[in-house]
Design a protein around this nucleic acid. Sequence first.
DNA 1: GCCGTTGGCTAATGGCATTAGCTTTTAGCT
DNA 2: AGCTAAAAGCTAATGCCATTAGCCAACGGC
Lengths: 185, 185
Amino acid sequence: MPRAGLDPATVVAAAAGLADEVGLANVTMGALAERLGVRAPSLYKHVSSQADLNQRVAALALTELGDQLRDALQGRAGRGALAAAAHTIRGYAVKHPGRYSATIRLDPQSPDDPIVAAGARVLDSLAAVLSGYPHDPANTVHAMRLLRSLFHGFAVIEAAGGFQMDTDVDESFEWLIDFVDRGLR
Amino acid sequence: MPRAGLDPATVVAAAAGLADEVGLANVTMGALAERLGVRAPSLYKHVSSQADLNQRVAALALTELGDQLRDALQGRAGRGALAAAAHTIRGYAVKHPGRYSATIRLDPQSPDDPIVAAGARVLDSLAAVLSGYPHDPANTVHAMRLLRSLFHGFAVIEAAGGFQMDTDVDESFEWLIDFVDRGLR
DNA sequence: GCCGTTGGCTAATGGCATTAGCTTTTAGCT
DNA sequence: AGCTAAAAGCTAATGCCATTAGCCAACGGC
């Protein structure tokens, strides 16, 4: 019998895809193994545990999101950059709900965990957005926390179907970008 | 052997307390049963499943939070009301992390689910905060979504230990309240 | 062609939620 | 007080899940 030819990256990519389809909570070792044409215990040759797998999916997600943010912010500043970042984050969360939710509960085990680096790149992009606005450097951290909280909260609530009223969610999102843009000037 | 004398409310309250102590994910039927001096299967006489239990904990949390918000907003308007609501929500999430996280992933099964009513009361309080600011009624829903996203996102990130930098988180929270207050005027 | 490493397998363990079916308490009724 | 039916507890059993142990075959380097 020929081998499946797996490696950690393949396994993590499959887990990410499965998470987007069926939800992160339903990514069991069995389901993932089946998708890869393999038995569950074999996965342990590539990842050390399910927690490890989740961390790696989170790192993948943060890396992808960081790349997309960097691309989206190219040549933009001020309101344009803010809107681009906002849409990129929301778009990623909507398109990749499983990956995105993997990033919610994570605790990096060591300071050289890839998650830390990937997360830092996302934060760099938020800092870049802010650099296009006049601001007191003492408030940069506060403003970054504002952006994170707002975008993240919106993504979580939207993913959970929490915006019940029939007012258009896209419209609210645009209004919200405007609100922040005005406040930052 | 005498009976334990449980009822759904007792079980849910114990689950909520346990969730705050050990995290919602660690509230197993076995652990909860042990705390109540009972065997795990006995719990099914009071709640129909673990999902049901989580929903009930979420309803309890939203009810408590709604009550606290209503109290906190008594006699306040404008910035005072905004700050009071913000601190109430953050305080609840910090003090009751298990209960709070139960409210994140919920899908009411029917329109008369207590969760819906409890959630509506929380939203009413947010609407009350906004009523103290001048605003176009067409934007009320947008502004409520802003507040929800911001407070919820902040709570989730703080609970996950996501604010790494050593800048004071309390200070960021105050700054954030100010930011919203200025924007709403 | 040989050999060590690696990646797959089966089998077994232990935790978990949940169901079935039994027994005893308890509250209400006469 | 005694009877009865419902309610609330129990033990035993099922099935899924993650994980570990230990075996064996495939592959790469020589």
